[in-house]
Design a protein around this nucleic acid. Structure first.
Lengths: 223, 223
DNA sequence: CGCGTCATTTGGTCAAGCCAATTTGCAGAT
DNA sequence: ATCTGCAAATTGGCTTGACCAAATGACGCG
């Protein structure tokens, strides 16, 4: 499988691997841009784009005229910002919580809500056919279900958890997940969820939602 | 005052301003890279670096061969919850979510965690006997269970939901709830939850937690 | 009217070079 | 011998210019 992601994403991942593998530990200085670019077989501008991505997610620090330094990766200490959740944690949380919420939703699911859900699936299929990322449709599907419970807290929690995936932290990994095949699989699973809701079968809906989010997490990590 | 930050950061901010100001709304396409670079007075590589930063934080989406598009900017972000939720909504949310979480916790409940939970119950009984409000013990009980899953997101969510009850909004109603009898009932229910966890019975724990939080919500509202 | 083809548009990447900040090292003074 | 200061080497910051590849749209053919 050829990696079709943008070069800066691939390059950022390769640098992350160098650090994870231990070639460069926290505090160490990476090779100079010119040298590192040649070593990775990419041009300097492309490497610089990758370095900016790594700088944003806190992997490295760039000091003008000095060098590129590896930051302490395993430390939420210091500032108030604590975004230390791993993708697997995130998807487990979504699987457990959204499965519980959809049980509430299934019982009182209105025809109007079902219509909206069908619309998101159609729009999602359209996005995929046109090679667009159906992120907004995916988001809408999960959010509509949560909102249909009538409890705004459910909607807020689902919304926050969903958006967490697109935080700067997970940006580097994001590219893996968003292939056409992955979205097609997600769409199929959405259809299964909708079918259970149309049948007003809470347990089937719960199972379908749980299955969808665990599979989604697997797709996200497996690449 | 001259801005000494890297050019890509300054440029990213300027593009954010263009979007915030309304020049380009969600879904709109920004000018082509070459044109936008000239318009902002920077080189194309520098603009590209800025665009990567904006792509990572979810402000824009870059489609190869097509253009640069503004994404939905509706993300106040953060876990901060605004007011507007009713107590019944809050307690329903806690009942559903904490019931789902305790199922995960029951499976892998360690003896060490059980010891901590017993300690909170003893401290809670002590507080009640001395006519103190055992709010902290109550909080600790629920939080320890969520933390025992090993998933920090569960702990965060439970924490936020719990603290919501003590927001200014619900302060007026709170007094009714906090009678000695109510706390005694809560303590009894906590004991029932702990018993299910000691038996490592996920379904019994789920039922006990759900029962506790719905009863707690009832006590909160009935006065 | 439908549909395929090709030119245009637009992002993706590379190469080479110069500027600016930092570091380094050596020479001279103490 | 040690300290100081300045210049050269190192390193990141940024620009120009060019070419490739994907997406789009217009045009002409059937």
């Amino acid at each position: 499988m050829t990696d079709t992601r943008r070069l800066y994403q691939q390059t950022a991942d390769r640098v992350r691997q160098l650090i994870a593998r231990g070639d460069y530990q926290a505090g160490a200085r990476l090779p100079a841009e010119r040298e590192l670019a040649q070593q990775l077989g990419v041009s300097r501008p492309s490497l610089r784009e990758a370095l900016i991505a790594l700088e944003i997610d806190g992997t490295i620090e760039i000091r003008m005229g000095s060098g590129i330094y590896v930051l302490n990766t395993t430390k939420p200490a210091g500032n108030g910002r604590s975004l230390g959740e791993s993708p697997s944690e995130l998807m487990q949380a979504r699987a457990v919580i959204e499965s519980a919420i959809i049980v509430q939703a299934a019982a009182t699911m209105s025809e109007k809500t079902l219509v909206m859900l069908r619309a998101t699936l159609n729009a999602m299929a359209d996005d995929i056919a046109n090679t667009r990322k159906p992120i907004e449709q995916d988001r809408a599907f999960h959010l509509i279900i949560a909102e249909s419970t009538g409890n705004t807290l459910f909607a807020e929690i689902v919304e926050n958890l969903f958006d967490e995936r697109h935080s700067p932290l997970s940006a580097g990994i994001r590219g893996h997940f968003e292939t056409a095949d992955s979205w097609t699989a997600a769409l199929t699973e959405h259809h299964a969820i909708l079918a259970a809701l149309e049948a007003r079968d809470p347990l089937a809906a719960q199972a379908a939602m749980h299955s969808h989010l665990t599979a989604s997490g697997r797709r996200w990590l497996e690449n």
